[in-house]
Design a binder for these strands. Structure first.
Lengths: 150, 150
DNA sequence: ATTCCAACATTGGCTTCGCCAACGATAGCG
DNA sequence: CGCTATCGTTGGCGAAGCCAATGTTGGAAT
């Protein structure tokens, strides 16, 4: 008699299923650890984009992070509420806001970067460093193929 | 001047981000192709479990497929509406329904299995057969670690 | 046998996430 | 001057996963 919680073979070997499962665990771990640091994935994405590319408009941030303009608004409101970013009107283009990361924001980003490192570790525990590299390379090629050619 | 839609480096190299992106593309492709065959992922999971393990109660199906009991109800309603499964009360335990896959259901499952093969192909286009195996093995180990130890 | 707890199917609702539509304001171009 | 596009913002939609409550039934303990 098959155990009640056995996963069908047609699923457990298909890459799409595996990727979905991996993403599920990944997302779960990330949400847990980030919420322990009072943050969400959106916050990290936005802060990282700000630190890497400098001040930018909200629309540009959305494009870079893959976050919808409307969701950027909400996330930036939260970040501004904690003093991690600042919103100021662009004198050169009065439609735009210029978003700047504050020193506190940089600190918080660094903290979250550490947390994110722990998350990778927690997710990839069973893999050696070389295997993690291998996985990263394979996934990069898959993702690249579907993002550039689109 | 950095292009407006450049992805921050802190993201594009982290496995969690890559897995998330891959899952996104995977999910998009799967939804597209399956909806062209008038099906959803839930349907495939349930039919596959039924074919592999034979008739089962709804709760057992939910456990095997990882679908919540309440969502199993809705999905089975849809499948029953198309004559792909049959619901009959269990004489031995009147709390249970016994779900049986019909011949039409088996046909449809076989069809969807083909579609799923095409989906794997579409997703993993840039990878050789050996690389797909490698990816599958790596992901399997990651997923196993987080499902067994939980 | 009665009592109490667990499992079942079902309904309904909640949250997150990604997305889209609309709006008023502004910019740039013909 | 229009016309079109972009910007920030609000509001809402749909899918997915999850949880709670309900009425029913089984099974085990007392």
């Amino acid at each position: 008699m098959t155990a009640d919680d056995t996963v069908p073979a047609l699923l457990k070997e298909t890459p799409t299923w595996l990727i979905g499962q991996a993403a599920m665990h990944s997302h779960r771990i990330l949400t847990e650890r980030f919420s322990a640091a009072d943050a969400r994935g959106y916050h990290y994405r936005l802060l990282a984009a700000l630190k890497e590319f400098g001040p930018a408009s909200q629309a540009a941030l959305g494009r870079r992070t893959g976050i919808d303009r409307s969701d950027v608004v909400a996330a930036l409101n939260e970040l501004a509420g904690k003093g991690l970013i600042e919103r100021s009107p662009d004198p050169a283009d009065r439609r735009r806001n210029i978003i700047t990361i504050t020193p506190a924001g940089v600190d918080h980003l660094d903290c979250l970067t550490d947390v994110l490192g722990e998350i990778q570790d927690a997710l990839l525990t069973p893999l050696s460093a070389a295997e993690r590299d291998q996985l990263t390379r394979l996934l990069t090629r898959v993702v690249d193929h579907h993002t550039t050619r689109r």
